[in-house]
């Protein structure tokens, strides 16, 4: 029974992703701006050359015919070829995705590492100055534009203190063979510990910039759900049994308070996988977000529609995973 429900949810994700792809396709084509004009800029070029370029890119065909080409390509598993970069879109996305996934995982880890202790202590000592400080800190984290915070971090840690690198994924002088595209994995596979350390250092500032914002959200959720659970009967019972306070908190309360935290984490994960354009630009991080935004400004329709579709898939997928985990942890809720 539950399996069929799950399958149904998985299948229902497909029309959403497809719908988003078609929406993106139409949306993009109604935008002012001609990709060929943008690409050629002020190059010396004749009208005939312009026309032949347009017809090669199918830009001279009616909208529906273009949509047909896009959809029939999708069925064959072909995402098309980038207008500006003349490279398969699947390759472009495949090249940028590992960087984004790596940053996403690091961000979520940073977020959890900060938020869990802060949220728990905040709940246990609810109302204390510690709690108030943590709460205000969380609000500051939420209210900060990421590029501003990121630039300040670069200024402090990279320029003034010189303990961390400013940007990029690995020092220019390090030679790392690309196998998986994940810098941390590749450096380990190569057995190059020095490069691994370097890659880790490069990850810290962007992950911290994004992670602080996420930690702020997560800490508040952890605090709220802990507070609720701490007031429940079984916790009171456990306390009455004479279990040590922190034992109660960690063993009984935390486990039950984890569910909402997991929800927020899962959704954040799905959202971050779409790439963060702003942090990626500030830290010269070659991820998906930067690819998509530069493509939309260049009107590289083919890249944007594929990326938006991918984003929709991860978004729907993350929702699905969260719901599935929810059911797993809390059998009272059905999908």
């Amino acid at each position: 029974m539950r399996l069929t429900k799950l399958l149904e949810r998985v299948l229902s994700a497909i029309p959403v992703a497809l719908g988003v792809a078609v929406l993106a396709f139409m949306f993009l084509r109604f935008l002012p701006g001609d990709p060929v004009e943008i690409m050629l800029g002020d190059t010396q070029v004749s009208q005939q050359q312009l026309d032949s370029l347009r017809s090669q890119l199918h830009l001279d065909k009616p909208l529906l015919a273009q949509l047909g080409i896009f959809l029939s390509g999708l069925i064959r598993g072909d995402l098309g070829v980038s207008i500006v970069k003349n490279a398969p879109v699947a390759k472009l996305i495949g090249d940028t995705l590992p960087a984004t996934i790596e940053l996403t995982i690091a961000t979520v880890l940073v977020g959890i590492l900060i938020a869990m202790p802060v949220g728990i202590i905040s709940a246990v000592r609810a109302g204390s100055w510690l709690d108030r400080t943590a709460l205000s800190g969380a609000l500051v984290g939420i209210s900060m534009p990421a590029f501003w915070f990121g630039l300040l971090m670069i200024l402090l840690f990279a320029v003034e203190l010189r303990v961390l690198p400013t940007s990029g994924r690995i020092a220019a002088t390090m030679v790392v063979d690309k196998t998986t595209g994940f810098m941390l994995v590749d450096t380990l596979l190569a057995g190059n510990l020095k490069a691994f350390g370097g890659a880790l250092k490069h990850l810290i500032l962007p992950a911290l910039t994004l992670g602080v914002v996420f930690a702020a959200v997560l800490a508040r959720v952890v605090r709220t759900s802990m507070l609720e659970v701490l007031g429940k009967d079984y916790v009171t019972t456990a306390r009455a049994k004479g279990l040590r306070e922190w034992g109660v908190i960690l063993k009984h309360a935390l486990r039950n308070a984890l569910i909402p935290a997991l929800t927020v984490t899962g959704l954040q994960f799905g959202e971050l996988l779409g790439g963060n354009m702003i942090v990626e630009t500030v830290f010269a991080w070659p991820g998906l977000g930067r690819l998509v935004v530069s493509s939309i400004f260049a009107r590289d329709y083919v890249v944007v529609q594929a990326a938006v579709m991918l984003y929709a898939l991860t978004y729907v997928g993350a929702n699905l995973v969260v719901d599935a985990l929810y059911t797993l942890l809390n059998p009272r809720i059905s999908l």
């Binding site: 992703a17 935004v293 938006v308 978004y315």
Partner: peptide, 19 residues
């Protein structure tokens, strides 16, 4: 709303502002 939610906000806003 499902479609809108699954559409990245920033791309949506950039496109809308262009339009």
């Amino acid at each position: 709303t499902e479609l809108l939610l699954a559409f990245p906000y920033l791309i949506f806003a950039i496109g809308m502002m262009a339009f």
